[in-house]
Structures are given as structure tokens and as C-alpha cells.
Design a protein around this nucleic acid. Structure first.
Length: 829
DNA sequence: CCCCAGACG
DNA sequence: CCGTCGTCTGGGG
């Protein structure tokens, strides 16, 4: 078959969308053709099938378009793209970080395994969890028949008439999930659960400590469970754990005396494999369920690895470039998290099926796919991925939906809609959420999906409020269709654009925890915050210093890095802002943005960013790449230039202390390359008035370097020398404008005021939405520094966590450089 | 900004 | 006789 995916030969060819994909574990050596035939026969002619057909054709059209585009690409373009791609690749390559040990753990056939554990009769039978219309999981026995997750039960029954279908018991799964998470926490307190049965862990720290652990701390007892008499004696399945719960050093004595059970001990070594094996062992002891794990230098690889020896196995990919590249070589792209059915098909159409193909075709891909997409592809092809475990952001939406058999009466539709709103309102209450956007989702009997949304100027939370909106949306849809009725098979209601509520601060808690495990838990209560702000507010009113419009410096279009859509409009929005509360209508300028050198050093280079950690320039404007570089730097202590500044901050002053301490934020000018090159002339501080900031910025050829903080002495002693002999500029990190002073105390005062305007506004909350994420908060680090942080809140696992990392980076950078200063992190969008 | 569809897990 | 929930992206007003 020379089917390239773009054209369909109709015949017996299955829809690629419907066919079994043998991607998953446990599906080796089964009769795929036969299975697909059954699937086809069960589906053919159904509405669902028709819809799938339609969607497949859509994808095919997309592919045709792509092929057309491909045909028009000239040699020249390809050449050029190739150069760019190689440049990108080498930058990414530099950022490769093999120092972390990331583990992905995944319970085997989780729901099914739980049900089997609790009902031994199921043990030897093919079974699945779910319903006649949809299965969540199947056990390995059932998988032999092609029965798998996301398959409707009635089809599964055809594949395997003996299949036992058990309905889901989420409470039970949640309970088990809690148990395994307790274990996860022992190895990485900041582990990231991805679902009930899956998590990423960063083992790096655990391993370091583990090296000095006594054997006793690595010893676990096998204890027998009576529940599973028929379990083979060879298996470790019916045993339970002991020890370990105690602190590493304390369980030695206990161990010896506990030896009564005979040989029922297992000592685990200090290696990664042993540690992970131990973790899996403990999971099994505790839950009588097995887990599989993947060990690799980053999350992307770890995820793939965990699948490799499933079930009840683990796989370690050594942390060498060579091993990684070998591993990637023949890895089917479909195995990679984020590349699904559609992407696979599109890639296949380009004759790309493995990751090495991906690498070979990058130039082409860069011309055919969006930047985000091909960057992802590029990272995949290089075996790169996140090297830290991202935290979960606060939720962005909440929804409920229901499928039912045809519902055509408007009346019934409205009452159903109300029910949904009731459910939703209840859920919202649990999390104390208020949302501004309500979305109605409808699926008709032909499986066509529609969503209709409305964003309100205010936030809603109660049933009636939500329903009022949903009802209207539904009404217009019904009217739209009339005189025909809406023939629905599903309805859903979603709320999003949550307003930020003050009393939630999971954000900085977790991120601080990430940086300083066990050390920094305290964050100012929002109440205190308000009091502080109130206080500040007075001085604010009285002060002649008013923050000029943010983002102003990006007024000229060509100065806008990364196509910041907001920048132009926000300038306009700022025009007549003078009251403090108005100013922060705008976004803070991100440090990331601030680092974009659009004018370049001395007006020559125009595509560099300066790493805030190593101070090197990175030849790119691509944040993904830049981020990777930063990641690398952060993980390489030798790159941090903090040795030179470590001593400069003994002061314990804090912000409340009337700004006595000197605070400097400066940027380097000119073509400064190497670390340690600090400007030394404070006399060359910019004299621009705050209100003329934009002009002065326009005129200056500022290399927007890292924000550096320190005492005033340090400004003179440790600033980088500017390469074109211009001095440092005092630029407020909040409003981004140069300040007309070289008096650091004055400048600091300005920053504080600026900051507090921002904070005030943020806590006012009226205008914030999920896109203008919540908090500027004060955080107490090491009990003596107050930082105001604004953390970016969108984060995607599918892409590089730019901002998350960058935030960490800034904090780290700040921490290494100063003990008492203000750090600003802000979102860019 | 808002809306919507679609991909993905 | 083919689910639910949440996130992200990309295109378009």
C-alpha cells in the first residue's frame, strides 16, 4: 500500500482514527487485522462513524494543504531554513542538561488492577473498567483481545465476548492514589502528579542523600498478606512494607530485632535503579498493585521509558548524550507525549515516523509547522525535555458535561442545563471560585460539537447567575435552529476566567518550596499584606513620584519582542493614567522581555538575549531556546557569577524598614559579553526623567541585560565594564523606565512605590482574570527577605515551561545576589 | 481581549 | 451503538 495518508483508497482501509493503535503496552503479537475488522464492522454506519469519517477527511485536507505548501518550497528557502534550524539546534544543544534524574511512575492498568485486587474472581478473566459505552482501562488479559482504554464497551464485548466490565469506583482509586503519593513524597516532596496513577519525580536530591544512608534505611520488609493466598510464591505481590517511614538514621536497631520473619527483608542499594525499584516495591507492599517507572534525564524521556518495561518494570536511560540519541533514534514519534493521532498522521505524510526522521526533516518542518510545533519537534528530536518537575498551576476552568440519549425538547434542554449549572456551582463553591466566562457546549446527535461562550464584566458563582448566562446561550442556539429542534446528545457548561481571590497563595508556596525545600514556608498573610499596602498607599498618594505607563518603551512596534500583542494597545490604554490605582491596568514588563535586545549592542547585533544567570548573551530571540539555556545555567553552579557578589549582602534590612538600604537595579550598556564585566561608573547613571523615560530609552542603545541588585558599593566595584564605555542606567524594574537620579536611596524609593502601586492594584482584584494571573505577594525567604513576586500562571506540559523556569531563575539569581532586595517577576504574554 | 474549533492526554 | 475534564494552540473578530 503506497498510502501516504493524504489520499484515501476508500476500500477496506480503516479510518486511521478508529483503528486500534498498538501503541500501548500489552498489545504485542495480536491479530491486529482481525481486531480492526471487528471494530470496523461494529462501527460502520453509525453516526459516530460518519462523524469520524468527516473528521478524518478534514485531517486529510489539512495534509493536502500541507503537501501543497511543501511543493512550493524552494531550494533556497529550504537552505535558509536549514541554517536557522542548525543554529537553533546548536543553541538547544548547549542547553542540554543531563544532571537531573527524572522519574516517571505509572501504575499498571490502574483502575483494572484495583478492581482485580479487590475481587480475586476477576483475576484470570479479561476485564475492563468502565461501561458499555466507554472503557477506562482493561487488564492485560483483555488487552490480548484488543480491548483497551477509550474503547466503548459494546465493541470490546465483540472483540472479547467473555469480557467482564466493572463500573468505576473513583473514590477507591483516589484512596489508592493517596497511598502511592505518600510514597512518592518520600523520594521527591515536590513530585508532580499527572493523574491518579501517574507522576513525575525528581530523584536528584534523594539520590544525593541516599548515598550516605545506612543500609537500615534502605531495607524493607516483605510481609505476607493473607488476602492473596493463590498468589504465586515467587511474586512479591503479597507483602507489605516496613521501615523507611523512620528517619534515615533511626531505624537501625529496629531492623535487627525484626528479623523474625526470616528472609523477608530486602535491602536496596544506593543507585537510581535501586531507589526506584525500592519505591515500586513499597508501592506494591502498600497497595498490592504494581507500578512501572522510567528513569531519564528529562520528563519527556522518562515518560517514554516508563512505558518500555511495562507492566511491573522499569527502564533507565543513562544520562549521556550518546545514550539519549541512541534511544531517540528509532523511537516512533507517536510515543512522544504531545504527538497524537493527528500529528502522527501529518508527520507520516512527510515520511516521518521516528524521532530521527524528525531531526532529519527539521528544516522542512520549520517551514510547514508553527513555531511552537516545530520547536517541540526539534526538542524531541534532540531528546530534550524539561529537567525539572513543574508545579501545577491553579486551575483555569471548571466544567461539567453529560451525554444522554437524544434530547430535543427545549424545555428538557433548559432543565438539563440548569442541572448542569447546579452541579457546577456546587463544585465552584468547593474551591471558592468566581468566574467571568460561561461556556455552553452542545453536541448534536451527529456528534457535531459546538461551544458558545460569553464573558461578563463581572464574576458569577451561584447557580442562578451561571444559569442566567447558560440559558441565554442555549436559547439563542435553539432559536438559531428553529423551527427544527436541537437534537442533542451532550450538553456541558464550563466556567473560566476566574477572578483571583486574595486568600489563595498556593502559587508562591509551592514555588518557594521548590527552590528551598523545607526552608521557606512562610509567606505573608494576605491580611498583613493589605495592612502593609494600606500604609504604603498613603505615602503613595503624597508622593510626587508616579509610575509612568508601563510598557511605554515598547511603543514603537519594532521594539516589541516576540510580537507582544498587548504592547501596543496597552500604551494607548495608559495615556491618561496618573492615579496610582490606574497604572497597573497594564502588564508588568517581564524580565524576559526586558532582556530582549532589540536594538542590540551598539546597534549592531539584534538577536540576542542576555542570560540573567551567566550573563552571557544567547544568540536567539526564541524564548524556548533562551529558556533552555537558562535551565542549563541554573543547573550549573559554575555558571553563576555569584561568587563575586556573594559577599555583598550581609544586610538584614527589609523593605518595611523605610528603604534605608540601597538598592540598585541597573542594566549594562553596550556589548558586554563575559561574566564579571560590570560597569563601574555610577556617574554615568542615566539622568532621564521618569516621565521622559520613553524618549531616553529610545535614544539609548541599552543592552537590556540582567537585573542586578546589590549595595551601592557594589555598583561601583562590581559592575561590568561597559564595552562601549557607557555607564549603567538606573531602570526601575517595575515600570521599566530610567529614573532621573543617581541617588540609590531615592531610586529605591521609587521602585518601592512603583511596586506597591502594582501590588495594590493586584490585590484590588477587580480587573484580574485568569489571564492576568493573580498575585503579587510578599514572600518571606529565609526569614529576612521580602520579595514581591508575580508569577506567571499559565504553564503547559506540552511545551517548555518557559515562565516557570524563568521565575525560578530570577529568584535564584536574586537570591544569590542579594539578601534584602525586591525581586519582580511578571508575566509576559 | 474574546470566541471557537480542534488536538491531546 | 463511542465519556469526561482540563489545557493549549491557532485562527479570526
Amino acid at each position: 500500500m503506497m498510502d501516504n495518508g493524504a489520499t484515501s483508497t476508500k476500500e477496506e482501509r480503516f479510518l486511521s482514527r478508529m483503528a486500534l493503535n498498538d501503541n500501548k503496552a500489552g498489545m504485542e503479537g495480536l491479530d491486529r487485522d482481525k481486531i480492526n475488522k471487528i471494530i470496523m464492522e461494529s462501527s460502520k454506519g453509525s453516526k459516530f462513524y460518519e462523524n469520524e469519517l468527516k473528521r478524518e477527511q478534514q485531517v486529510n485536507r489539512r495534509i493536502e494543504k500541507m503537501m501543497l505548501q511543501k511543493a512550493q518550497i524552494t531550494e533556497q528557502q529550504l537552505k535558509k531554513a536549514q541554517v536557522q534550524v542548525e543554529k537553533t539546534a546548536s543553541v538547544l544543544e548547549m542547553s542540554r542538561d543531563l544532571s537531573r534524574v527524572i522519574v516517571h511512575v505509572d501504575m499498571d492498568a490502574f483502575y483494572a488492577a484495583v478492581e482485580m485486587r479487590d475481587c480475586p474472581e476477576l483475576k484470570d478473566k479479561p476485564m475492563a473498567v468502565g461501561s458499555m459505552s466507554m472503557l477506562s482501562t482493561s487488564n492485560y488479559h483483555a488487552r490480548k483481545y484488543g480491548v483497551r482504554a477509550a474503547m466503548p464497551g459494546f465493541i470490546a464485548k465483540k472483540l472479547c465476548p467473555n469480557l467482564v466490565i466493572v463500573s468505576t469506583n473513583f473514590d477507591k482509586y483516589r484512596a489508592v492514589s493517596d497511598e502511592i503519593r505518600e510514597i512518592f513524597a518520600d523520594y521527591d516532596p515536590h513530585f508532580q502528579p499527572m493523574s491518579l496513577d501517574e507522576a513525575y519525580l525528581d530523584f536528584t536530591d534523594h539520590l544525593e542523600q541516599r548515598q550516605s544512608w545506612p543500609e537500615s534505611s534502605r531495607t524493607h520488609r516483605l510481609s505476607s498478606f493473607e488476602n492473596l493466598p493463590q498468589e504465586s510464591a515467587l511474586e512479591e505481590t503479597d507483602l507489605s512494607p516496613v521501615l523507611f517511614e523512620d528517619s534515615p538514621n533511626s531505624s537501625l536497631g529496629l531492623l535487627g530485632s525484626e528479623g523474625a520473619a526470616g528472609d523477608a527483608f530486602e535491602v536496596f542499594g544506593t543507585s537510581v535503579e535501586e531507589a526506584v525499584r525500592e519505591m515500586r516495591f513499597r508501592i506494591e507492599q502498600k497497595t498490592r498493585l504494581t507500578a512501572s517507572a522510567g528513569i531519564a534525564p528529562n520528563t519527556m524521556l522518562a515518560k517514554v521509558c516508563s512505558d518500555k518495561n511495562k507492566p511491573n518494570g522499569q527502564y533507565r536511560l543513562p544520562s549521556t548524550r550518546e545514550a539519549v540519541m541512541d534511544f531517540i533514534e528509532n523511537l516512533p514519534v507517536r510515543k512522544v507525549c504531545g504527538i497524537g493521532k493527528v500529528s502522527e498522521k501529518m508527520l507520516n505524510a512527510l515520511s516521518i515516523s521516528t524521532c530521527s526522521h524528525l531531526g532529519q526533516q527539521m528544516a522542512l518542518l520549520s517551514l510547514l509547522f508553527s513555531e511552537t510545533s516545530w520547536h517541540h519537534f526539534m526538542e524531541v528530536s534532540l531528546g530534550l525535555g524539561s529537567t525539572f518537575i513543574p508545579r501545577h498551576e491553579e486551575r483555569k476552568s471548571m466544567s461539567t458535561e453529560r451525554t444522554f440519549r437524544e434530547l430535543s425538547k427545549a424545555e428538557e434542554q433548559f432543565s438539563l442545563c440548569r442541572e448542569l449549572c447546579e452541579d457546577l456551582a456546587e463544585d465552584m463553591k468547593k474551591e471558592d471560585l468566581k468566574a467571568k466566562t460561561v461556556t455552553l457546549k452542545l453536541k448534536n446527535v451527529n456528534f457535531e460539537v459546538k461551544t458558545r461562550a460569553l464573558t461578563l464584566p463581572y464574576a458569577v458563582a451561584t447557580v442562578d447567575e451561571i444559569f442566567a448566562v447558560a440559558k441565554d446561550l442555549l436559547k439563542t442556539e435553539i432559536e438559531n435552529e428553529s423551527p427544527q429542534p436541537l437534537r442533542l446528545r451532550l450538553m456541558g457548561v464550563r466556567v473560566s476566567a476566574f477572578v483571583s481571590l486574595d486568600d489563595k497563595k498556593p502559587l508562591q508556596k509551592s514555588i518557594i518550596g521548590f527552590l528551598q525545600p523545607g526552608k521557606t514556608e512562610s509567606s505573608g498573610s494576605s491580611k498583613d499584606m493589605h495592612q502593609n499596602l494600606e500604609k504604603e498607599n498613603h505615602s503613595l498618594q503624597a508622593s510626587p513620584l508616579v509610575c509612568p505607563p508601563l510598557m511605554q518603551k515598547y511603543q514603537r512596534k519594532e521594539e516589541v519582542p516576540w510580537r507582544n500583542k498587548q504592547s501596543q494597545s496597552s500604551t494607548k490604554a495608559n495615556d491618561n493614567k496618573n492615579a496610582a490605582s490606574d497604572v497597573s491596568e497594564n502588564e508588568l514588563v517581564s524580565p524576559v522581555e526586558a532582556h530582549a535586545s532589540t536594538s542590540g549592542c551598539g546597534g549592531t547585533s539584534s538577536e540576542t538575549l542576555t542570560c540573567p544567570v551567566c550573563f552571557r548573551r544567547v544568540e536567539t530571540t526564541d524564548l524556548n531556546i533562551f529558556n533552555s539555556h537558562i535551565d542549563h545555567c541554573l543547573n550549573d553552579p559554575t555558571r553563576k557569577p555569584n561568587q563575586s557578589t556573594a559577599s555583598d549582602s550581609e544586610s538584614d534590612l527589609d523593605l518595611e524598614n523605610d528603604h534605608q538600604e540601597s538598592e540598585v537595579v541597573h542594566r549594562r550598556r553596550g556589548e558586554c559579553e563575559a561574566e564579571g564585566e560590570m560597569s563601574k561608573n555610577s556617574e554615568e547613571l542615566s539622568r532621564d526623567s521618569p516621565h521622559e523615560g520613553q524618549q531616553s530609552l529610545k535614544n539609548s542603545s541599552v543592552q537590556k541585560g540582567p537585573l542586578i541588585k546589590g549595595d551601592s558599593k557594589d555598583v561601583t566595584s562590581q559592575q561590568p565594564q561597559s564595552c562601549n564605555s557607557k555607564g549603567p542606567v538606573l531602570i526601575c524594574p517595575v515600570c521599566q523606565l530610567t529614573q532621573e537620579t543617581d541617588d540609590l536611596t531615592v531610586f529605591n524609593h521609587h521602585v518601592d512605590l512603583c511596586l506597591n502601586q502594582q501590588v495594590l492594584h493586584e490585590l484590588g482584584g477587580q480587573t484580574s482574570s485568569s489571564r492576568n494571573p493573580p498575585a503579587v505577594k510578599n514572600i518571606n525567604i529565609r526569614g529576612k527577605c521580602v520579595y514581591y513576586m508575580k508569577l506567571f500562571s499559565t504553564f503547559s506540559l506540552n511545551t517548555n515551561p518557559i515562565l516557570c523556569t524563568f521565575s525560578l531563575c530570577c529568584m535564584t539569581a536574586l537570591e544569590t545576589r542579594c539578601e534584602h532586595n525586591v525581586g519582580i517577576l511578571s508575566p509576559f504574554k
